[in-house]
Design a protein around this nucleic acid. Structure first.
Lengths: 260, 260
DNA sequence: TTACTAAGTTGGTCTAGACATTTATACTCG
DNA sequence: CGAGTATAAATGTCTAGACCAACTTAGTAA
């Protein structure tokens, strides 16, 4: 028994939909259930209330609720069975795909405490690789964010991010020194990041980079160029992260495919 | 102009929905559009008819049509833009599983010709990380192979490989300068390589490394430590490859996981 | 011409139902 | 007790609208 389940063992949602919010109702419902299931404290197989019951409780129509449940099912969080009901999905641990993580998540998974120092936040015009990647009209503006990323208060990396402004208007409202950009995009703008490509190379730091990283004079840096896409295949982020070579190692899992 | 587009250049659907079929209407519509776009003959950016028009033409309600379009959009085949319309999507990189490839395969996929210069081939005792990784009794011997790897006759990387001798007895029979180790293991010893983990870091080359790589004096190197496993989870190979930072970039595809 | 404005178009979200299909359950009949 | 059957419950599909928000375009005024 869990505080998130009722007497019958059904999962229980304590949320109220804000119909005046610009965030659609289905997104609010999806986020609520996602957060409920995220900790993994609710055992797989636990039933959700029937759609019609949940609809009435949340005050939305069934199509709206289903829009939320559809994406949760695509994400593998819940399972629906016609005639039986909807249930918390079993945790399938086939991690066959390389997982994309933010710096924050990456550092936390190594048992360290991530933080940031904001260096630059501004609006810029597109140039160079931005145009190729985002494929936006030249009038579209981007946010440029530069941060020093720290782990346990030691500078580990410099990060420069470009994000189209239309995807996250008023991004300056958020505390970029304290929060993961990924989580801001996902939780506050409803963007669902889906996949990314990273190009990893080695280089020597420039003098300002070395100073910001407090890097030893004989150190190399690991440069990661990341291109991030949303679940709608929209280019979301173009980022360059420069890690101290002596403090950071990128880890990659690969699987053997069929060979030509 | 294309036979699948009308006079205005809109894509044109010649399908009729069979409402008596057990296949849902949205699935029929999705399949039809999918098949239309599959050949890739319709240029990206070609508009689809507006939803309301398509609805009437197909005799379905808008929600049904959108159910079809939603999944097409998730698959990256079409793009919808509020206020503008729906268009054939540009062909973007498909998100795929990170593939494990040998140096030979990697270089070939970049359109270059790989080759090798054998530096060292010998039997050695296990030591240090070998013991952890292979988990073999200390009496077991390993092969150690060191090679300079070249692409179009330019030195790109130094590679040092450790492989347990029991997995590939008489490995010296093969021409390690000309062949991919992976292909030798797979084709001649029946080993099925399944997956690997790589740790990628940046460093400065030692003097002998710099000489062998003919690296510029101010260059960094990309160091890749690879642990390879067979399909039976047997540790097969422990390798360190040192790439010239100015000539090589590692590429990684990642996907956003739904579970922590 | 240029800049602003208004109208129209388009996709995004949502409703309140309807019927279909699958599954689980309770009941009846042998 | 067991087998088949009716019934209820649950999700799956679909409709015919509605309003909203974003974009395009045509028209107007400076």
């Amino acid at each position: 028994m869990n505080s998130s389940t009722d007497v019958q063992g059904n999962i229980f949602l304590r949320i109220r939909i804000d119909k005046t919010s610009p965030i659609p109702a289905y997104a609010q419902i999806g986020e609520a259930i996602r957060n409920l299931l995220k900790p993994g404290t609710i055992p797989p197989g636990t039933p959700l209330p029937p759609e019609r019951v949940l609809c009435e409780r949340l005050g939305v129509s069934r199509m709206t609720l289903r829009q939320a449940c559809d994406s949760l099912e695509r994400e593998g969080l819940i399972e629906s069975h016609r005639g039986r009901g909807t249930f918390v999905a079993p945790r399938r641990m086939q991690k066959k795909q390389q997982e994309m993580r933010s710096f924050t998540e990456e550092i936390r998974s190594r048992g360290l405490t991530p933080s940031s120092r904001l260096l630059v936040f501004r609006s810029i015009k597109q140039s160079g690789s931005d145009l190729d990647f985002f494929g936006l009209p030249e009038t579209e503006m981007l946010y440029e964010v530069e941060r020093v990323r720290l782990a346990d208060d030691t500078p580990i990396a410099l990060e420069r991010i470009h994000i189209p402004q239309y995807l996250c208007p008023n991004l300056d409202r958020f505390n970029l020194a304290a929060n993961s950009i990924y989580s801001i995009l996902e939780e506050n703008y409803g963007l669902r990041l889906a996949h990314c490509t990273e190009q990893i190379s080695a280089a020597l730091p420039t003098k300002p980079q070395r100073q910001l990283l407090q890097s030893p004079s004989n150190g190399a840096v690991l440069v990661v160029n990341r291109r991030t896409y949303s679940d709608k295949q929209t280019p979301v982020e173009l980022a360059t992260t420069t890690f101290r070579g002596d403090l950071y190692t990128a880890v990659v899992h690969s699987v053997r495919g069929s060979q030509p």
